[in-house]
Amino acid sequence: MALPPLPDEAIVLGSLAPDWRSAVAVAGAALTASGAARPGYSDEMIRMIDEHGPYVVIAPGLALAHARPDDQVISDGLAVVTLASPVSFGHPHNDPVRVIVGLAVESVGGHLDLIADIANVFNDQSRIGALADATRADDVRAIMGVGAGSGSGSSASAGGSASGSSAGGSASGSSAGGSASGSSSEGGS
Protein backbone atom coordinates (compact mmCIF):
# COMPACT_ATOMS: atom_id res chain seq x y z
CA MET A 1 0.00 0.00 0.00
CA ALA A 2 1.62 3.19 -1.16
CA LEU A 3 -1.09 5.58 -0.07
CA PRO A 4 0.05 7.94 2.66
CA PRO A 5 -1.86 7.73 5.95
CA LEU A 6 -4.93 9.85 6.62
CA PRO A 7 -4.65 11.45 10.05
CA ASP A 8 -7.77 13.11 11.46
CA GLU A 9 -6.37 16.48 10.38
CA ALA A 10 -6.50 15.35 6.74
CA ILE A 11 -10.19 14.43 6.83
CA VAL A 12 -13.02 16.97 6.79
CA LEU A 13 -16.55 15.60 6.74
CA GLY A 14 -19.64 17.60 5.83
CA SER A 15 -17.80 20.78 4.93
CA LEU A 16 -20.10 23.72 4.31
CA ALA A 17 -17.93 25.04 1.46
CA PRO A 18 -20.37 26.80 -0.88
CA ASP A 19 -18.39 26.60 -4.13
CA TRP A 20 -15.51 24.75 -5.75
CA ARG A 21 -12.88 27.29 -4.79
CA SER A 22 -13.69 27.07 -1.09
CA ALA A 23 -13.99 23.29 -1.34
CA VAL A 24 -10.50 23.01 -2.85
CA ALA A 25 -9.23 25.45 -0.22
CA VAL A 26 -10.62 23.19 2.52
CA ALA A 27 -8.67 20.28 0.98
CA GLY A 28 -5.57 22.48 0.89
CA ALA A 29 -6.02 23.48 4.51
CA ALA A 30 -6.36 19.80 5.44
CA LEU A 31 -3.09 19.00 3.64
CA THR A 32 -1.47 21.85 5.54
CA ALA A 33 -2.96 20.74 8.86
CA SER A 34 -1.64 17.22 8.36
CA GLY A 35 1.84 18.50 7.56
CA ALA A 36 1.94 17.53 3.87
CA ALA A 37 1.85 21.01 2.35
CA ARG A 38 2.48 24.65 3.10
CA PRO A 39 -0.39 27.15 3.18
CA GLY A 40 0.31 28.35 -0.35
CA TYR A 41 -0.56 24.94 -1.80
CA SER A 42 -4.31 25.72 -1.81
CA ASP A 43 -3.83 28.62 -4.16
CA GLU A 44 -1.65 26.47 -6.41
CA MET A 45 -4.39 23.84 -6.66
CA ILE A 46 -7.00 26.50 -7.43
CA ARG A 47 -4.71 28.07 -10.03
CA MET A 48 -4.41 24.73 -11.87
CA ILE A 49 -8.19 24.65 -12.24
CA ASP A 50 -8.38 28.32 -13.23
CA GLU A 51 -5.76 27.65 -15.86
CA HIS A 52 -6.97 24.34 -17.31
CA GLY A 53 -10.62 24.05 -16.36
CA PRO A 54 -12.55 21.46 -14.37
CA TYR A 55 -10.52 18.46 -15.58
CA VAL A 56 -9.82 17.50 -11.96
CA VAL A 57 -13.38 16.19 -11.75
CA ILE A 58 -12.23 12.81 -13.03
CA ALA A 59 -15.32 10.79 -12.13
CA PRO A 60 -18.94 11.52 -11.25
CA GLY A 61 -18.95 13.31 -7.90
CA LEU A 62 -15.18 13.24 -7.35
CA ALA A 63 -12.51 15.91 -7.79
CA LEU A 64 -8.82 14.97 -7.54
CA ALA A 65 -7.25 18.30 -6.66
CA HIS A 66 -3.50 18.74 -6.73
CA ALA A 67 -0.75 21.05 -7.94
CA ARG A 68 2.85 20.59 -9.00
CA PRO A 69 5.46 19.13 -6.74
CA ASP A 70 7.24 22.32 -5.67
CA ASP A 71 8.34 24.11 -2.54
CA GLN A 72 4.76 24.19 -1.27
CA VAL A 73 4.88 20.40 -0.82
CA ILE A 74 6.45 19.09 2.38
CA SER A 75 5.76 15.38 1.95
CA ASP A 76 3.48 13.04 0.01
CA GLY A 77 0.02 13.47 1.44
CA LEU A 78 -3.67 12.87 0.93
CA ALA A 79 -6.71 14.73 2.21
CA VAL A 80 -10.37 13.78 1.92
CA VAL A 81 -13.11 16.41 2.09
CA THR A 82 -16.81 15.64 1.84
CA LEU A 83 -19.33 18.39 1.24
CA ALA A 84 -22.63 18.94 3.00
CA SER A 85 -24.00 20.33 -0.26
CA PRO A 86 -22.51 19.28 -3.61
CA VAL A 87 -20.74 21.99 -5.60
CA SER A 88 -20.34 22.51 -9.32
CA PHE A 89 -16.91 22.73 -10.94
CA GLY A 90 -18.39 23.40 -14.36
CA HIS A 91 -17.67 19.87 -15.60
CA PRO A 92 -19.99 18.81 -18.42
CA HIS A 93 -20.47 15.23 -17.17
CA ASN A 94 -19.15 14.65 -13.67
CA ASP A 95 -20.74 17.48 -11.68
CA PRO A 96 -21.94 17.90 -8.99
CA VAL A 97 -18.97 17.08 -6.75
CA ARG A 98 -19.45 15.67 -3.26
CA VAL A 99 -15.94 14.45 -2.54
CA ILE A 100 -12.61 16.25 -2.94
CA VAL A 101 -9.44 14.20 -2.72
CA GLY A 102 -6.50 16.54 -2.19
CA LEU A 103 -3.12 15.24 -3.25
CA ALA A 104 0.41 16.49 -2.62
CA VAL A 105 3.40 14.68 -4.09
CA GLU A 106 7.04 15.46 -3.51
CA SER A 107 8.32 14.48 -6.94
CA VAL A 108 6.93 13.56 -10.34
CA GLY A 109 8.93 10.34 -10.48
CA GLY A 110 8.10 8.85 -7.12
CA HIS A 111 4.34 8.97 -7.12
CA LEU A 112 3.16 6.25 -9.49
CA ASP A 113 2.57 3.65 -6.78
CA LEU A 114 0.48 6.21 -4.94
CA ILE A 115 -1.54 6.99 -8.08
CA ALA A 116 -1.99 3.29 -8.78
CA ASP A 117 -3.39 2.85 -5.28
CA ILE A 118 -5.81 5.74 -5.79
CA ALA A 119 -6.96 3.90 -8.91
CA ASN A 120 -7.26 0.69 -6.89
CA VAL A 121 -9.56 2.44 -4.44
CA PHE A 122 -11.82 4.26 -6.89
CA ASN A 123 -12.00 1.68 -9.68
CA ASP A 124 -14.62 0.28 -7.32
CA GLN A 125 -17.30 2.72 -8.36
CA SER A 126 -19.19 2.45 -5.08
CA ARG A 127 -16.39 4.09 -3.13
CA ILE A 128 -17.18 7.70 -4.07
CA GLY A 129 -20.73 7.44 -2.75
CA ALA A 130 -19.49 5.61 0.33
CA LEU A 131 -17.03 8.38 1.07
CA ALA A 132 -19.67 11.05 0.51
CA ASP A 133 -21.89 9.31 3.06
CA ALA A 134 -19.16 8.65 5.62
CA THR A 135 -19.80 10.13 9.06
CA ARG A 136 -16.58 9.18 10.85
CA ALA A 137 -12.92 9.60 9.99
CA ASP A 138 -12.43 5.89 10.65
CA ASP A 139 -15.00 5.11 7.96
CA VAL A 140 -13.03 7.20 5.48
CA ARG A 141 -9.82 5.39 6.37
CA ALA A 142 -11.53 2.02 5.99
CA ILE A 143 -12.90 2.98 2.55
CA MET A 144 -9.52 4.26 1.43
CA GLY A 145 -7.69 1.32 2.98
CA VAL A 146 -5.25 3.45 4.97
CA GLY A 147 -4.39 4.05 8.59
CA ALA A 148 -4.24 7.25 10.59
CA GLY A 149 -0.45 7.41 10.60
CA SER A 150 1.85 7.88 13.53
CA GLY A 151 -0.32 9.15 16.32
CA SER A 152 -2.65 12.09 16.27
CA GLY A 153 -0.57 15.22 16.55
CA SER A 154 1.68 14.63 13.53
CA SER A 155 2.89 18.16 13.07
CA ALA A 156 4.66 19.76 10.18
CA SER A 157 7.83 17.70 10.38
CA ALA A 158 6.36 14.36 9.29
CA GLY A 159 9.55 13.24 7.58
CA GLY A 160 7.70 11.08 5.10
CA SER A 161 8.81 7.77 6.52
CA ALA A 162 5.67 5.79 5.83
CA SER A 163 6.84 2.90 7.95
CA GLY A 164 4.69 -0.18 7.98
CA SER A 165 2.32 1.20 10.54
CA SER A 166 -0.81 0.91 8.47
CA ALA A 167 -0.33 -2.30 6.55
CA GLY A 168 -3.62 -3.92 7.43
CA GLY A 169 -5.79 -1.10 6.24
CA SER A 170 -8.57 -2.16 8.56
CA ALA A 171 -8.57 1.14 10.42
CA SER A 172 -9.52 -0.51 13.64
CA GLY A 173 -10.12 1.61 16.66
CA SER A 174 -6.73 3.32 16.76
CA SER A 175 -8.13 6.77 17.28
CA ALA A 176 -10.79 7.28 19.85
CA GLY A 177 -14.40 8.30 19.59
CA GLY A 178 -14.15 11.99 18.90
CA SER A 179 -12.64 11.50 15.49
CA ALA A 180 -15.50 12.72 13.34
CA SER A 181 -13.64 15.93 12.74
CA GLY A 182 -15.51 18.92 11.49
CA SER A 183 -18.75 17.09 10.77
CA SER A 184 -20.74 20.15 11.56
CA SER A 185 -23.79 19.37 9.52
CA GLU A 186 -25.10 16.06 8.39
CA GLY A 187 -27.84 15.02 6.09
CA GLY A 188 -27.31 17.51 3.32
CA SER A 189 -29.36 20.14 1.58
Binding site: E51, Y55, V56, I58, A67, R68, I115, A119
Partner: peptide, 9 residues
Amino acid sequence: GVGIGSSGI
Protein backbone atom coordinates in the same frame (compact mmCIF):
# COMPACT_ATOMS: atom_id res chain seq x y z
CA GLY B 1 -2.17 19.78 -16.56
CA VAL B 2 0.69 18.56 -14.39
CA GLY B 3 1.30 15.02 -15.61
CA ILE B 4 0.58 13.55 -12.20
CA GLY B 5 -3.03 13.25 -11.14
CA SER B 6 -5.57 12.51 -13.80
CA SER B 7 -2.98 11.51 -16.41
CA GLY B 8 -1.44 9.16 -13.86
CA ILE B 9 -4.81 7.53 -13.22
